[in-house]
Design a protein around this nucleic acid. Structure first.
Lengths: 362, 362
DNA sequence: CTGTTAGCGCCTTCAA
DNA sequence: TTGAAGGCGCTAACAG
């Protein structure tokens, strides 16, 4: 038993399919009140559900928004996804999800799949990479996006533009001031601590990570401090944990020299909260305490991590809002109206949030 | 400039659309090797991307899996979503996401929307409710699901069956042994603590919450303990926090009587980890310490919360696996093959995991 | 205001 | 093996 069709509804109501269509959807034309009711009755007596595929085919648009993330279970992306979902609802669209693990090749596949489904717009979250090993894939991704845009698709990228993508119409970038915020974080941290800094970063070439590292170093320099040493690892908890182990060994070595702990030996900046938590877990596992033996700060201000103790110093990013903005940027007519900044990158702001994990006893 | 069509490719390759179709898709028929290459060349010289909507219309199936969750930013659902996404990839399908906040009315809308898009299957996560205020909406949801199944759709529900949905073909339930596991938790907790128990639950009528509460009480009873008092609140961190405040006041009152703390005054069971964390935060905010002043356990073993201190006792649930199983259950031919349990509910297992938050000093 | 006529892009019988 | 024809369900131009 197949789902009933518009034609069946029309027949039951004794009208033409066209009329039925006009009644059941938001057509500009308003059919006669009397006939409209008949159609509506017929429709739900048959349990009629319009075939979105057919509708999409007919008007070549799908009511779909494609969302590309590295990992939907990562709270960073989950938060963004919530925002996207939220904005999608405003636009009465549904969201199609693709997770790529951050690989440009997979992202390209996802874009192609979205294009095949005629998604009205695509939101890409997750750091871009400039690693040489990704060069070709990035180029293909860029080409795929270009084509999608040229065919009328709209895309928004969170953070950096896709490497090599031309600034086509319909291509929006939601800029996140990673560098600037990391600089501000360094400034505040340097004001309260005069020892060494270490950065736990992601793999070289990940823009988000690199920007945050660069900004942090700038802030340090501006405060007259020596640049921080950089430990690179994978951009997740495991990476943070590993780096944490390394640092723990170092800290414990230092303590051995001086006999006993006399306060933090190090201020650690992990380029995202999840890595920071990983690092903190490693330190703890090695018997070190925060902020007593080392202070630590992260980046993102992941909601689920706010109950972590000691409370993690970080930079608050309006993740959900970012998702919303990105999605809205791709809405038809989003850059119309009074907005004179049409086509300019959206600007996001964040906020340095110092908490217990970087408190140095006076 | 619209995307190029199969017809254009065919023309460029000098063949008929039918042939082109056979080449470009996995048709049973094998066209001539030579002609096949011509078509493929034409295709990617034009940057041809098949129109999934048209394909879907023609063969009435869409390669889409609909996923319904309360909130994608909730780590519980995010974890399940990862599993779904994973299994979807195995099936070479994409996932359509709908978030409903848990309202049956919204869930019904989501099912209808998925049906409209001709989703091949639907996975519903998130607790069912039997609250009287939801009765009508639940009925509509059930009706919508029935219709969807009758039209050939496949659905999997995590936890309880949808109230009132008939056990149609294509309707699967992934049963989660909440009651049994909560009972086991109570048993273990009762073995190590001889004081009072309190349960922080969700609103009455939420199956997941009710099952866990019932199981817990059973376990207590079996251990010869008095039933726990039950505090009900919303099924999220805020609800846990509020309950925590109440309990904190009570604990502090008790302490005033005896002069000073002499060990935990209460063992708290929150029906999910997020509520447990909320409650813990409230206790801490009121100056109480865990497990010194009160012990606490949750349920789910949310990954992001594993670094929480003191480590939270909980019941581990294989969330990602649950998502995967649910999705696989809806795969065509999933209940065929050697499996004699076709159509029977899938069974999940969990594991009581006692950690620091319920350690009572000897 | 309603009904009729064409497709949207593809797949799938059929006949050649 | 390949091509021609019809239809999937709906909408958008026309005509009445």
């Amino acid at each position: 038993m197949a789902a009933s069709t518009l034609t069946e509804v029309a027949r039951l109501a004794g009208v033409s399919p066209a009329t039925a269509s006009r009644v059941l959807n938001g057509s500009a034309r308003k059919p006669g009140k009397d006939i409209a009711d008949r159609v509506r009755q017929a429709a739900d007596s048959l349990g009629y559900i319009p075939n979105a595929q057919a509708q999409g085919l007919a008007k070549s648009s799908s009511g779909l928004i494609g969302l590309i993330v590295h990992d939907i279970a990562d709270p960073y992306f989950a938060a963004i996804a919530r925002g996207v979902q939220d904005a999608a609802r405003e636009q009465r669209k549904m969201v199609l999800l693709a997770t790529t693990g951050g690989a440009p090749a997979e992202e390209k596949e996802a874009v192609a799949a979205f294009a095949a489904r005629r998604a009205d717009s695509i939101v890409i979250a997750g750091s871009r990479s400039s690693r040489t090993e990704d060069r070709d894939d990035n180029a293909e991704l860029a080409a795929e996006l270009d084509r999608y845009c040229r065919n009328g698709g709209r895309v928004a990228v969170v953070g950096h533009p896709v490497v090599g993508a031309s600034a086509l119409e319909g291509y929006h970038v939601i800029a996140v001031p990673n560098e600037e915020l990391a600089r501000a974080l360094a400034t505040e941290l340097a004001a309260g601590w005069n020892g060494d800094f270490v950065v736990i970063g992601g793999p070289e070439g990940l823009f988000t990570s690199d920007d945050r590292i660069r900004g942090f170093q700038e802030g340090l320099a501006k405060a007259g401090r020596a640049p921080a040493e950089i430990l690179r690892n994978s951009f997740n908890r495991a990476g943070g944990y590993e780096a944490g182990l390394t640092l723990a060994a170092r800290i414990k070595g230092g303590q051995a020299d001086t006999g006993e702990a006399t306060g933090p030996r190090l201020c650690i900046f992990a380029v995202n909260d999840v890595m920071a938590i990983g690092a903190a877990a490693a330190l703890r596992a090695e018997g070190l305490r925060i902020p007593r033996d080392a202070t630590i700060a992260g980046f993102d201000d992941i909601e689920t991590l706010r109950d972590f103790r000691p409370a993690l110093s970080t930079v608050r990013l309006p993740l959900e809002e970012i998702g919303r903005l990105a999605t809205r940027a791709t809405a038809p007519g989003a850059d119309g109206g009074d907005d004179h900044d049409a086509g300019l990158p959206q600007q996001i702001t964040g906020e340095v949030t110092l908490r217990r994990s970087t408190e140095v006893a006076a």
